[in-house]
Design a protein around this nucleic acid. Structure first.
Length: 438
RNA sequence: CGGGGCGUGGCGCAGCCUGGUAGCGCAUUUGGUUUGGGACCAAAGGGCCGGAGGUUCGAAUCCUCUCGCCCCGACCA
């Protein structure tokens, strides 16, 4: 993308409405624009990151055997009356009346709907197990939205729902999701710690929340340093193998991790001192096993091998996709701006042509831009160098290829790594090698 | 939902107390000089002062109501 033609409005001044780093930076970098309290429009740069995060989530869900569907944002109140949650959910739920005076709502979650859909087709134990997920906008009418996309009212969420014949099967589904979650966050360059959690209004008796370690997080967490070394390659753990899942689950849940309100000093003392870590965290995911709570209420049952009806065991698994952007920035930024992990960066490289119009600088910039095949922003604006440096630092592209008349005359590109500030002077070939090889 | 605060050009703010032709910085446009870390000079454009009532000769300013947004707390992917 050429910045001379891009819709990428960066702000020099900090918008008064933002209180935390990620919110300020997303506004300043031109990623989002607030349209109402807790509701945001996504601008080109923000949308690119959102889609990258979404895609990583999708790939790991698919790899775990879940199947993607897409359910609507608007639901009928009838479904929620069946489960009893229409009254329970309270004012958090945005209720809508259509022209025929029918009660509708903007979905805050989809347990009822997915159970109802599944019920229409699953008739036999052969139709289980299944895991269905979708990535869709949700709306929860928070009393007090804040922190930008970290706690918006409208937010993009991945929610998966598993259906199993028995508790044993449901346990495997639960563990497969936990593994997928750890891989998902790992791929985004994040350090995630699963913690046993309250089940809240969704209900059930087994639940973990996933906390991203970030210095500016809301809650204090205590965890075993072993989480920092966890390697979760597909080679080590195959989600298709129950024994692998069990090994993984035991390993992860065997390690100490707790938020401050669940902190247990006695258990904490068992963790060797050199492995004790204390930090701040942001919740980005939550998984629940809740048994037959919804399958029963929604009348879902399939025929077992003996012909007798069986009510499936269910779980649900959420990831706050849009919230993750805020969490990533909270975990990875500095005074100058965002520092995107490579996997989710809107563009891998920013090409800073310090003097558009200079023949050598133009030629070298164009050559590099073409070679990077779209995964680069090309700052060809007629601005001063400082503006380009600051904008590139702010938007947080992992690499900056700085091209000025001096170096360009000799075919030299100054390559800067955003995360470390390290700069090297290299040839075009070497620059490509470093950028694409990383 | 309780408590507090703020709405004035795209952004950040002053003006309000003590009513009298709406201002500053940034951004934008034009011209010139600049050109490796958010340049300088000159000129220009851009405002139903959140909205509705009221008081007054006169309201951004005072009064009433209303809408929006932010912050602290309780709740949450």
């Amino acid at each position: 993308m050429r910045l001379s033609r891009a819709f990428l409005p960066t702000l020099k001044e900090i918008p008064a409405e933002a209180a935390i780093a990620s919110h300020k930076l997303m506004l300043r970098a031109g990623m989002i624009r607030q349209t109402s309290a807790g509701i945001y429009a996504w601008l080109p740069l923000g949308l690119r990151v959102l889609k990258k995060v979404e895609q990583i989530v999708r790939e790991e869900q698919d790899a775990a055997g879940a199947q993607e569907i897409l359910m609507p944002t608007i639901q009928s109140a009838d479904l929620w009356k069946q489960s009893g949650r229409y009254d329970d959910y309270g004012k958090e739920m945005l209720r809508i009346t259509d022209r025929h005076e029918r009660e509708m709502l903007f979905g805050p979650t989809n347990e009822e709907m997915v159970t109802d859909i599944f019920k229409g087709y699953a008739k036999s134990y052969r139709d289980l197990p299944r895991n269905l997920y979708h990535i869709q906008w949700k709306f929860r009418d928070e009393v007090r939205p804040r922190f930008g996309v970290m706690r918006g009212r409208e937010f993009l969420m991945k929610d998966a729902y598993s259906f199993d014949m028995d508790v044993e099967g449901a346990t495997r589904s639960y563990r497969a999701m936990m593994l997928a979650y750890m891989r998902t966050f790992q791929r985004m360059g994040l350090r995630a710690v699963p913690m046993r959690a309250d089940t809240g209004p969704i209900g059930g008796n087994l639940s973990h929340e996933f906390i991203i370690l970030a210095p500016t997080g809301e809650s204090t967490v205590f965890y075993d340093a072993a989480f920092e070394e966890l390697k979760l390659s597909h080679a080590d753990y195959d989600p298709e193998k129950p024994e692998d899942l069990e090994k993984f689950f035991n390993q992860v849940t065997g390690l100490y991790a707790a938020t401050d309100e669940m902190h247990d000093e006695a258990a904490w003392a068992q963790v060797p001192g050199e492995r004790q870590r204390e930090g701040k965290g942001i919740e980005v995911g939550h998984i629940f096993f809740f048994g037959t709570k919804y399958s029963e209420k929604m009348g879902l049952a399939v025929a077992g091998p003996d012909g007798q009806p069986v009510v499936p065991q269910m779980g649900s698994y959420g990831i706050g996709v849009s919230r993750l952007l805020g969490a990533i920035i909270e975990a990875s930024h500095d005074e100058a701006g965002i520092i995107w992990p490579d996997a989710v960066a809107p563009f891998r490289t920013a090409i800073l042509n310090l003097k558009p119009g200079d023949l050598a600088a133009d030629a070298l910039s164009e050559k590099l831009y073409a070679a990077l095949q779209g995964d680069a922003v090309y700052d060809d604006r007629a601005d001063r160098a400082g503006v380009k440096f600051n904008d590139a630092d702010l938007a947080g592209y992992p690499w900056q290829a700085i091209i000025g008349p001096r170096g360009a005359a000799n075919g030299i590109i100054e390559l800067k790594r955003r995360a470390t500030g390290e700069r090297v002077e290299v040839s075009l070939e070497e620059a490509l090698h470093r950028i694409l090889g990383a």
